[in-house]
Nucleic acid binder design. Structure first.
Lengths: 164, 164
DNA sequence: GCCAATTGCTTGAAGCCTAAAGAAATTGAA
DNA sequence: TTCAATTTCTTTAGGCTTCAAGCAATTGGC
C-alpha cells in the first residue's frame, strides 16, 4: 500500500490548470461570437440580443409559452423575463394573455408582425453564424457538438450537486 | 461544367443548421457554467463575477494595467470598466493613479488587500471549475481546447471581415 | 509652433440582469 | 372546508453593459 499517494490526494493541491484554461477559452469564444451577433443585430435590425433570443423561443412554440417556461429555457430570472416581455408587447411583437385555467399564468406568443420580423432576422442570423464558424470542417463541428454535450452534462451534474 | 451546382450556390439557401446548433450549444454551456460560478462567488465571497474577472486580469499584471488594456482583455466597453473600477477602488481592492507620462491614462493595480482576497477566491474558484468539468477526460479537455482555439480563430476572422 | 486627428477616459440614457421580497392564485392535506 | 405551502408573476434595489457624445491630453503633419 502506498501511503504517499493517499496523503497526496488529501494534502497537495491537484493541478486544475487545464480545466481553468478550458473554461477561459470557452468564455472567450462565446463572448467574441456574442459580441459579433449583438452588433450585427443592432446595425441591421435595431434589435437587442435578448429580444431576439426571446422571439426565437416563441417562434418554436406556436401555442405560446408561459413566462416560467421562457425563464427556464433562456436560463434567466423571472423578473428579467417580465421586463423583456413588457417591452416586446409594447413594441407590438408579442401578444400576452392571462391563462383561463390558472389566472397566475401569463401566456405569450409572437404577433403576426413579430413572427414575420423574427423570420426575416433569423434567416440572416443563420448566415452570420455559418460565416463565424466557416473555418471549421463538418467533422470539427460534429466533434465540438459531441464534446460540448458532454461538458454540458458534466456542468449540469455539478450544478445539481451544488444545489443540495 | 456543371451549371446546376453554380445555380444552386446562388439561388438555393445552404444548410447552416449544424453551425446554428453548435452556437446554441456553446452558448448554453457557457451560460450554465457562468451561472454556477456567479452564484458560488456570491454565496462564498459576496463578490460579483465581473469584479472577480477584473481582479483576475490585474493579478496577472503586477505592474498594473490601463483601463484600455482591461477593456480589451475583458472584451467589454470602456464605460463599463470605468464603473467597475470605481466600485472596486471604493471598496479598497484597487489602487488607481494617473500615469505620469500621459495624463489621460489611469493605471490600476490590486491593493494588498485586493490581491490577498483574490488569491483566496481564485484557489477555490479553480476547484469549482475542475468539478464542473469532472466528467471530461484529459483527452476530451485537450480536444476541446484545440477545437475551441480553431473556432476562436474563425470567429475573429469573421469579426475582422465585418469590421471593414 | 500650430492645429487637426487620434487616443484614453468619463458621462448619460437606455436597457439587461439578479436576488430578494411580496402579491395573487392554486393546491393539497387535515 | 380550511388554511398552510407552493407556484407564478411582479416589483424593487442595486449592479452590469452598451452606445454615443463629449472632454482632455497627446501626436503628427505642416
Amino acid at each position: 500500500m502506498n501511503l504517499d499517494s493517499e496523503t497526496k490526494a488529501v494534502e497537495l493541491p491537484e493541478d486544475h490548470g487545464d480545466e481553468l484554461r478550458l473554461w477561459l477559452r470557452l468564455l472567450t469564444c462565446t463572448t467574441l461570437i456574442e459580441g459579433t451577433v449583438r452588433s450585427r443585430l443592432r446595425e441591421r435590425f435595431d434589435v437587442t440580443l435578448p429580444r431576439f433570443d426571446l422571439m426565437a423561443q416563441l417562434d418554436r412554440a406556436p401555442e405560446g409559452m408561459t413566462l416560467s417556461d421562457v425563464s427556464k429555457r433562456m436560463m434567466v430570472s423571472n423578473g428579467n423575463v417580465t421586463g423583456l416581455v413588457e417591452r416586446l408587447v409594447e413594441s407590438g411583437h408579442l401578444d400576452r394573455r392571462t391563462s383561463v385555467s390558472d389566472r397566475r399564468v401569463q401566456v405569450i406568443r409572437l404577433t403576426k408582425v413579430g413572427r414575420a420580423e423574427f423570420r426575416r432576422m433569423a434567416a440572416e442570423h443563420e448566415t452570420w453564424i455559418a460565416d463565424i464558424f466557416s473555418d471549421l470542417t463538418p467533422k470539427d463541428v460534429r466533434e465540438l457538438m459531441r464534446l460540448l454535450a458532454k461538458a454540458k452534462g458534466s456542468a449540469q451534474k455539478a450544478a445539481s450537486r451544488r444545489a443540495l
